[in-house]
Design a protein around this nucleic acid. Structure first.
Lengths: 126, 126
DNA sequence: CAGTTATTTCAAATTATTATGAAATGCTTA
DNA sequence: TAAGCATTTCATAATAATTTGAAATAACTG
């Protein structure tokens, strides 16, 4: 409907035939662009990947996949400063990979369903 | 074998009972730590997520999922400077999300199997 | 209530990532 | 082979993410 199925006015040189052909079939440039997620969707997807793009956070994810853990145990396991750990936990919580609840003085972090989807490929335990 | 199944010497206060209990079952702190991927594995996983953590790159991924495309068509679709696009394409290629081949003056980028795994959840077309 | 503990918050310093525009590369055609 | 084209490379500037350590919270204990 909106697609320009003749040569797109992209270049001075004709673009490779195969590309042009396939492009025509999906409604030209505008047809192609319509396949993109919205900016909001993109942002959400990317935010999730960003949360998963740091080795410290990935370690945390793999740990809480085994069992729910208080901050001090996570700290003992990966050996970083409290504030640093807190920073990373906050990012993961914000994007929904983990959740937390308080138990006395302790705060216990658990993996979420969303988090489980992204910690695959390794045995949970021996 | 290596796990300390009695109270781990983490804190001055005893850690929450449930956490302690589950921890004992998997061989204590050391048992828990053994569930972590190696540094190399972690780095590889995180690098992949990093490549997916930018909206421009995610757009590119969704575009080449529809069909193989030359740089100029991608550029026409998302409207950014050549060098910027090149920068992002290079990151995606390095992490194996896309591959490229030359056709005359044009370079055509295609999604890889690895890339397909990470561009799910949207119709390919329509 | 005063002190201790586990965790978070904050501002500043550090480091990593991205953007920009000019120049370079490599292919193609006349 | 000179000129044009699509794309990349490079150095630098701009921006964003992470680290750090000190101070703040909030829950518990005596």
């Amino acid at each position: 409907m909106t697609g320009n199925t003749s040569k797109e006015c992209l270049n001075k040189t004709p673009i490779p035939e195969q590309v042009q052909l396939e492009l025509s079939e999906i409604g030209g440039l505008s047809g192609l662009c319509n396949c993109l997620p919205t900016d909001d969707e993109l942002q959400k997807i990317c935010e999730q990947h960003h949360a998963l793009s740091d080795p410290i956070r990935m370690k945390i994810l793999y740990l809480v996949r085994i069992q729910s853990l208080c901050v001090c145990v996570i700290k003992a396991c990966i050996g970083i400063a409290d504030s640093k750990l807190s920073y990373h936990l906050a990012i993961m919580k914000k994007t929904g990979l983990i959740s937390s609840h308080q138990e006395g003085n302790y705060i216990i972090y658990s993996i979420t369903e969303e988090g489980k989807k992204n910690a695959s490929g390794y045995a949970t335990n021996e």
